[in-house]
């Protein structure tokens, strides 16, 4: 039986629903040594800000039960270098390039989105309003529906590309935030970003991370992610990209059944650099075994 894993997302044709989660894949170069990136449905690159950011002090990663904490702090080489040194290289691949954009102010978001929109080096923007690891910007734009609406309306004005808004689970009511994003002009929603967590070294009695708190990712957060994707799929018209603790093809199926159009994979890449190509192969095998001809057949079936 032939199965069709392809996904039409925001007018972009994805070979399969699997793409990396921003921040877990650099700009692709490191993992291109392990496999052909054309295997992926799309690529999502590291959060890009106007100016270069060094990120937070180390230690900025820690392992926890079924997960990990990070407090990288949006370290990136800055917009100029991303446009000149990183994105052009991806043109040699035939896959949609999604650029994650972060900022400290509305003006910064707009200016970065504007230049990336006009660069012809990206196919979509993912707006990061959910980073828990920075003092300014990030989550402060994604935790309040009014603040988020204002930002999205302004960004929408300068964004000629499809606009994905990446949401945080660290909110009281994800539905309220999701509806606000839809109304303010988002084309798609990706979620969840990490949950805020902490680990204490019981030998020193101090938090392990230099910034004390960090974002929790990995299989530990998958049930939260499934629940939030499900809640939004139930009320939004927009396509949803599910993120959170995906390690297997079965996890991908679960997100699709919760209503996701596609998925992003983060932490699993660290455990196994071949995680995404392996999951894509397993997904095809799973669909054949279960007689699933295409993903539409099961998308949102749990709703």
């Amino acid at each position: 039986m032939q199965v069709d894993m392809s996904v039409n997302l925001l007018g972009l044709k994805l070979k399969n629903p699997v793409m990396p989660a921003s921040g877990c894949f650099g700009f692709g170069k490191e993992y291109s040594k392990y496999y052909d990136l054309n295997k992926l449905g799309a690529i999502v690159v590291k959060a890009t800000t106007q100016k270069a950011r060094l990120g937070n002090p180390t230690p900025r990663v820690a392992e926890v039960t079924c997960g990990m904490l990070n407090s990288i702090g949006l370290a990136n080489p800055g917009l100029d270098k991303v446009l000149s040194d990183e994105l052009p290289w991806l043109k040699s691949y035939s896959l949609p390039v999604i650029v994650n954009v972060a900022g400290e102010t509305v003006e910064e978001y707009c200016s970065v989105v504007d230049r990336i929109s006009r660069s012809k080096l990206a196919h979509a923007i993912e707006l990061n309003v959910s980073c828990p690891n920075v003092a300014q910007g990030g989550l402060s734009f994604g935790a309040d529906s009014k603040v988020l609406s204002e930002l999205l309306k302004r960004v929408r004005g300068v964004c000629s590309l499809p606009l994905i808004v990446k949401l945080s689970p660290n909110v009281t009511d994800i539905v309220e935030i999701g509806l606000a994003a839809q109304e303010a002009g988002a084309d798609a929603i990706s979620l969840i970003n990490t949950l805020i967590g902490m680990k204490i070294d019981i030998n020193t009695g101090r938090p392990v991370l230099a910034r004390k708190v960090g974002g929790l990712s990995g299989p530990a957060i998958k049930p939260v992610a499934i629940r939030m994707v499900y809640q939004l799929a139930d009320v939004l018209k927009l396509p949803i990209i599910g993120i959170g603790g995906i390690y297997t093809a079965e996890d991908v199926i679960e997100f699709i059944m919760a209503g996701a159009s596609a998925v992003q994979i983060g932490t699993a890449n660290f455990t196994n650099p071949m995680a995404m190509p392996d999951i894509i192969d397993d997904l095809e095998r799973y669909m054949k075994e279960k007689g699933i001809k295409d993903l539409d057949q099961i998308r949102g079936c749990a709703l």
């Binding site: 993992y31 990070n70 890449n269 660290f270």
Partner: peptide, 9 residues
Amino acid sequence: ACGVGACYG
């Protein structure tokens, strides 16, 4: 975390 230069950890 990654050990290969991708995560900036």
